Simulated scan of single mutants.
Amino acid sequence: MPRSSLRPHHPRARILSEMCAEFGIEPVSDGFDADQVEVTGAVSAADGVEEGDIYVAAPRWVDAPGEAFATAVERGASCILTDASLAPYAEGLDVPVLVVEDARLALGHIAQWVYRTDPKTPRLIGVTGSLGKTSIVYLLDNLLDALGVKTGMSTNRQRHVGEERMDAGGLAPEADELHAMLARMREVGVHVAAVELTDEAVSEHHIAGLYFDVVGYPDAGTALEGGAAARFEASVQLFAPEHAQRGVVNVDGEMGRRLVEETRIPVTTIASAAGEGADWWVESEPLDEGIRFTMHGPEDRELRSWTSQEGPYAAINAGSAVLMLDSAGWDVEQIQAALDRVDGIHLAAEGSAAPESRGSA
């Protein structure tokens, strides 16, 4: 079954010869005039190809390359880009074939060029780590809505651009899907998006061609061994000036404290108790419904509100989301006023915005 996507409704065609010149590649197949081939999209799933797309195939994505190439051409692919290991399966196709050393790495940059996405527009806020990623992305989306901001969002559960929504099916988006989303955001006037980032976001090139205004690390983990160590190193890669401008880090655990030491970007720190040396700390009070929380910051700054989420991490997750928006330019006092207007943070059980607020929006 084809994987659904959010992509521009009015793409502007690119010319294959211009793409080849931009990236220094040439079709390996003869008999095609690259000046006459138009490219209107970039796709990494053969069954998601639309008319005019360049289909980008890497070994890890393709189980039966011959079938995948045939499917892509049948669905209207205008050309194919792959690596040397898969190129033999593309011989004899009725479209130009291009070969690069690393198709997975090329995907994000090709998609960025095809869709004309700007690495810094819309503004992107990313969340990584082992725990809390999805919850905080939903919190960010909810808070931005309270601030009156039209948003985009991507989690492994759901994605949306404004009012357009799709089920993500538990799958992290590939780079082409993110760039297509950004192009659609540009069409409908979305200027900021929150994105859940897996451990492989950098190493597997999911964010190639993207740049994050703020990245967050909510993980309170303490073990730096085995798989946790590998995930931590992936986070260190993300918290770098090549990928992000600034960050917010939970320092309740050893991994967060280590990340603060190793990052090369400015970060704001948060903890769930006073005395941890964090810039901000959060106290909470469980209620019959939800949790009341108070954030304490430098120079006696505070934020007091309520969240419908429950559990041991609800308050610090809410606080992390607030600080990520503060770092992105919506100060804590502005967020406090917005939360007062809507009477707190209202999330449905699955994390999405609740259909009704407890107060007047």
Rank of each mutant, 00 (worst) to 15 (best):
residue 4 S to Q: 13
residue 7 R to L: 10
residue 13 A to K: 12
residue 17 S to Q: 08
residue 27 P to H: 03
residue 32 F to G: 00
residue 33 D to R: 12
residue 37 V to G: 13
residue 41 G to V: 02
residue 45 A to S: 14
residue 53 D to V: 11
residue 54 I to L: 10
residue 57 A to E: 11
residue 59 P to N: 06
residue 61 W to P: 02
residue 62 V to Q: 04
residue 65 P to S: 15
residue 76 G to Q: 09
residue 81 L to W: 00
residue 82 T to R: 11
residue 82 T to V: 03
residue 82 T to K: 12
residue 84 A to C: 12
residue 86 L to Q: 12
residue 89 Y to W: 07
residue 90 A to H: 13
residue 94 D to L: 00
residue 116 R to L: 12
residue 119 P to E: 09
residue 122 P to I: 03
residue 124 L to Q: 04
residue 126 G to Q: 01
residue 127 V to K: 13
residue 129 G to F: 00
residue 130 S to E: 08
residue 132 G to T: 01
residue 135 S to A: 11
residue 135 S to R: 10
residue 138 Y to N: 05
residue 139 L to P: 06
residue 145 D to G: 12
residue 147 L to E: 03
residue 154 S to G: 02
residue 155 T to A: 03
residue 170 G to T: 02
residue 172 A to S: 07
residue 179 H to T: 01
residue 179 H to Y: 02
residue 183 A to L: 02
residue 189 G to T: 07
residue 194 A to V: 07
residue 198 T to D: 15
residue 199 D to Q: 12
residue 199 D to V: 02
residue 202 V to D: 08
residue 202 V to Y: 06
residue 202 V to M: 03
residue 211 Y to T: 01
residue 213 D to A: 05
residue 216 G to P: 12
residue 229 A to K: 14
residue 230 A to E: 14
residue 234 A to G: 15
residue 237 Q to Y: 10
residue 237 Q to E: 07
residue 238 L to Q: 14
residue 240 A to F: 08
residue 243 H to D: 05
residue 247 G to M: 13
residue 249 V to K: 05
residue 257 R to T: 00
residue 259 L to M: 08
residue 261 E to S: 14
residue 265 I to C: 07
residue 275 G to I: 06
residue 275 G to D: 04
residue 277 G to H: 07
residue 277 G to F: 06
residue 278 A to T: 10
residue 280 W to V: 10
residue 283 E to Y: 09
residue 296 H to I: 04
residue 297 G to F: 11
residue 300 D to T: 10
residue 315 A to F: 02
residue 318 A to K: 00
residue 318 A to C: 04
residue 319 G to H: 06
residue 324 M to V: 02
residue 324 M to H: 11
residue 325 L to E: 05
residue 330 W to A: 05
residue 331 D to N: 10
residue 333 E to D: 15
residue 341 R to L: 08
residue 343 D to E: 06
residue 344 G to M: 02
residue 349 A to Y: 14
residue 357 S to W: 11
